[in-house]
Design a binder for these strands. Sequence first.
DNA 1: CGGTATTTTGAGCAGTGTCAAAGACGGTGG
DNA 2: CCACCGTCTTTGACACTGCTCAAAATACCG
Lengths: 249, 249
Amino acid sequence: MSADANLPLTLLVRKLETHSAIDDIDRGAILALPYVKRMAQPSEYLVTQDKAITHCTVLVTGYAYRQKITSDGSRQILSIHIPGEALDLQQIFLDQADHNVQALTRAEIAIIPYPAIRALMMERPAIARAVMVSNLIEASIFREWLLNVGRRDARSRIAHLLCEFAVRLHAQGLTPAGGFNLPMTQEQLGDATGLTPVHVNRTLRALESEGLLERDGRNITFPAWTTLSAIADFDPQYLHLRHQVAYGA
Amino acid sequence: MSADANLPLTLLVRKLETHSAIDDIDRGAILALPYVKRMAQPSEYLVTQDKAITHCTVLVTGYAYRQKITSDGSRQILSIHIPGEALDLQQIFLDQADHNVQALTRAEIAIIPYPAIRALMMERPAIARAVMVSNLIEASIFREWLLNVGRRDARSRIAHLLCEFAVRLHAQGLTPAGGFNLPMTQEQLGDATGLTPVHVNRTLRALESEGLLERDGRNITFPAWTTLSAIADFDPQYLHLRHQVAYGA
DNA sequence: CGGTATTTTGAGCAGTGTCAAAGACGGTGG
DNA sequence: CCACCGTCTTTGACACTGCTCAAAATACCG
């Protein structure tokens, strides 16, 4: 919380702590992982489909997203990642990536060799467990997104995405409750919700004109969190956070 | 392959073998797991949202599906499970289920207490790894479904679902290539693809009238697998099978 | 054989998509 | 500091896929 507050992997520990108990020894072991830090540019590929993965990338600052493309070129964004999240922990035991990950914004990343992670997981069962839980929660989020895209209308879909993002950022200690900066274009928002950018625009404006959200550039605030999360049909249980976050008013 | 061919957990081993190497000792250890066998009726709940999970259910015969419901009552089917698959291996380290699992048909299930599985995973790292890989592959399938529902039209969506099901059944050694029995109503097909049952019906008939599939009750055959899988935009890589299955003509 | 669940069909409608163009914004070079 | 340029956002008109409602035809099951 103090001396290592500036280490790049501190946020990774915090992320794991949102769902798992991490003791001091585990914490120290994670912070001691070898890594190389570098900067990634917006839309730079961090994981490429069909390629083998040999290292684990952790977001230190900035955002990234997973995506997959159909043969006719339309793109579906599968998840959005915030600082502290590991981008390919989940592929650790698979041969080839089955999708892509791209930087959403400029992002600082820490690159950790897989062998170091594997060794750590062997040595510290609690960490192995936390990694598995991480992956399981990500799968839970995929399920919720599937429900979102498959069964909710445009209005709810977008509201849901915004609610999730807000709560995750807040749980990770990155933003206060009440609003956040959304680093996505409306086209990307559409790719995440299965809509066209034009319709995203109309839906956002509709939500805005109903007083359910306020926008200033890409800063979003929620004047009526309770109503919005009801419209979104948002229940954070699927995020499996250890400590329920009191969000909104 | 011989003496234990009839044991209920044989199919579970086979399933793990579709993606991981399982040696004889591991195989024996899995087959030796304690279990209770029983029959589940169609639509019986095998996992219930918000409840803690205390045991692992393996499908021995019959099918099951995961689903999640919005507050206004529409349902999204998240995945379909075939014999040999474990239904809640993925929840093994989470407190509460975030979705439901129901039997699709009458199904024989083997119920294994979680402690036995945890112990086995501690003792046999290859099995722990295989379980993780199982979960990761399931997540990969969720991602593909998200792409399917978010970015493909009705025709491709349904074709994709059929292709996936056919290949998975075939890889698990349950059906020969060329066709299979689809134990789902058109309403369930709609819930899996984010469509209404009426539109599923129309799409199926269209595919049929174009000679891309043949139906006899719920038996489906593929007179033109190559064309169908092209329309479906189906590439089995996301299933992460160890041995590519030659499917179709 | 009767009753229920499923499939099929029709007609009309609504939510989203498409195409196109006009603003607004933000960064860059002169 | 301003003009310029590319990227985003916003708006309009219109088309179309997939939805709703409703009812008939089949299939399934005890």
